[in-house]
Design a protein around this nucleic acid. Structure first.
Lengths: 167, 167
DNA sequence: CAAACTGATTGCATTTAGCAACTGGTTGTA
DNA sequence: TACAACCAGTTGCTAAATGCAATCAGTTTG
């Protein structure tokens, strides 16, 4: 990962940071699956990332200021990865990619339901979800809204589809 | 490019199609720079793509239904690449990436001005620009709006910055 | 007719991705 | 206190993608 940039174009620079097949999936799992430890990210992802790639991406994402790392006081070996403010603001990028994929690619039903809700919810829902992420990852307190959070609603919808498919 | 998918997640599927360092740059140049021929894409890009990579990406993007190809009647060897409806709808993805890059990465002034305007314009401006792209690439007629188009405004802003920088 | 231009392709070296096994340490349980 | 399971990675190796420079055959321009 040398520092030479191909151009000063914002799209190019963004691609140089997260334009590979894994970085955004790691961020997705931290955002939507609340995976915060190395092992969680390694074993609970749909796609099966290998440990050296995961270690490399976590390192790079830290260097880029997209995630941060802290000791887990409950376990001497565990660390907790968190999204930074900058990382949280990748949500609209993921939401748009998710919406496009849902519309044009062979998305599975259980994994598509979140995309559908997020796409229908639009920028207003994204802003609310980013607020929730700031609370979870940065400890920023926010006024509790009535009813379930966006994160909870997405998770509940996923589980509803899974339950119906199994039963 | 084998067809095996890592998962049915919409974000993952989108990444498998355009999640590399070049595909989205080719689409960017077609959208914002109106590059339609192989040579234009090859020589007029900021980043300097090599010809074998460009040929491979154009092939893949055609196979994925993101761009299409047609003979150029003015020249027996020339072909014209166009964005499909599906390709045009990648604009919001590019716009979000562009906005994020503009906010957090060392974007050059002349290449950042489009990102700034597009970000400020929001979904409404993106919809208008997609309408313009549908006219240019798909031949879909639309009612002419008053004043310069989004594409023209972006280009004019870019040229204004360049003129000022040169003196 | 020659030079420049067209959309690529080929060969080769470098870089990145990916798999499987392994390391050194910690924690929970019997 | 022995021991399995768990923790965050690292190492060695192979496969695939990337990138550069040269080349190609047909087309258009002067």
């Amino acid at each position: 990962m040398t520092d030479q940039r191909r151009s000063g174009c914002p799209i190019n620079l963004t691609l140089e940071v997260v334009g590979d097949k894994w970085s955004l999936l790691v961020i997705r799992d931290m955002m939507f699956g609340n995976r915060r430890h190395f092992r969680e990210l390694l074993t609970k992802s749909e796609e099966g990332i290998s440990s050296n790639i995961l270690a490399d991406r976590l390192k790079t994402l830290r260097e880029q200021g997209i995630i941060s790392w802290a000791d887990d006081p409950s376990h001497k070996q565990k660390g907790i990865y968190s999204l930074t403010a900058q990382g949280i603001e990748l949500l609209p990028v993921l939401a748009q990619m998710s919406g496009w994929g849902f519309k044009y690619l062979p998305v599975s039903e259980e994994l598509g339901i979140r995309a559908k809700l997020l796409s229908e919810g639009g920028p207003k829902m994204w802003a609310e979800f980013m607020d929730e992420l700031r609370e979870i990852h940065l400890g920023v307190k926010r006024r509790k809204k009535a009813g379930p959070s966006v994160g909870e609603r997405l998770q509940a919808a996923y589980e509803r589809v899974m339950a119906r498919k199994k039963g």
